[in-house]
Design a binder for these strands. Structure first.
Length: 216
DNA sequence: TGCCAGGCCGGGT
DNA sequence: ACCCGGCATGGC
């Protein structure tokens, strides 16, 4: 038993449904997951807009594009050279294993897909899980900087614990439910952006202010 | 104006 | 198994 269900209800009550992920298609969601690595989402939107404007937001088009051309289009997202390479690595995998189809990828088993994604250069645990949850609708919880910060600020788990420890806590505390995992992570990002900055004290206006902890 | 944003890799200890 | 430098733009 942990406080995580109560935490969810407090966030949902305060902010309501978030309806993530911003993206028109599963492929767009996967691209966004890679582009947003350590990067403001607003910059990612600019990059995706450039791809759409050029009519190249597809596996085939990006697969056939020279890396330098791709880098130029995604420039607003930052780290554009390395991200161009990472996008191409992901799309190589998508082409080789699933004929470039996210719909085919979705038919795969979650754990084998996760292992395969982690073997793609440029895809770590957060990006893999974001693709699994938000693009493929697999029930896996996404841990990000906000999740670590919010939980550690409220002394639910120490900040320097590994990704897997945070993820196991969510998995063992909640029903295995795609919609729940989706909303919960989105709500954590919401409260993190609004009240839980990297610098600064705990805000008294935060809906989680005074949250008791009773884990362990 | 410096700090920060929904990480990850590769090389070194 | 950790630790660290590098990667880069745009908003506040």
């Amino acid at each position: 038993m942990t406080i995580l269900p109560e935490l969810y209800h407090k966030l949902y009550h305060a902010f309501g449904p978030q309806s993530w992920w911003p993206g028109d298609t599963p492929f767009e969601v996967a691209v966004g997951a890679i582009l947003t690595q350590n990067t403001n989402w607003g910059n990612v939107e600019k990059a995706i807009f450039n791809l759409k404007k050029q009519g190249v937001l597809s596996a085939k088009a990006i697969h056939e594009m020279p890396p330098d051309d791709l880098a130029l289009l995604i420039k607003p997202a930052g780290y554009f050279n390395i991200k161009a390479k990472r996008l191409k690595s992901f799309i190589d995998f998508l082409m080789n294993d699933f004929h470039g189809s996210m719909r085919r990828m979705k038919t795969g088993d979650m754990y084998s897909l996760r292992d395969k994604l982690l073997n793609v250069n440029g895809i770590g645990p957060e990006t893999a899980d974001s693709i699994l949850l938000y693009a493929l609708e697999k029930p896996v919880f996404v841990i990000d900087a906000y999740t670590k910060r919010v939980l550690s600020r409220h002394e639910i788990m120490e900040h320097d614990r590994p990704y897997e420890d945070f993820q196991k806590l969510f998995h063992s505390s909640l029903q295995t439910d795609v919609q729940l995992f989706n909303e919960y992570h989105a709500l954590i990002v919401k409260v993190g952006k609004t009240f839980c900055k990297r610098r600064g004290p705990l805000c008294e206006k935060c809906p989680l202010h005074g949250l008791q902890y009773s884990h362990g």
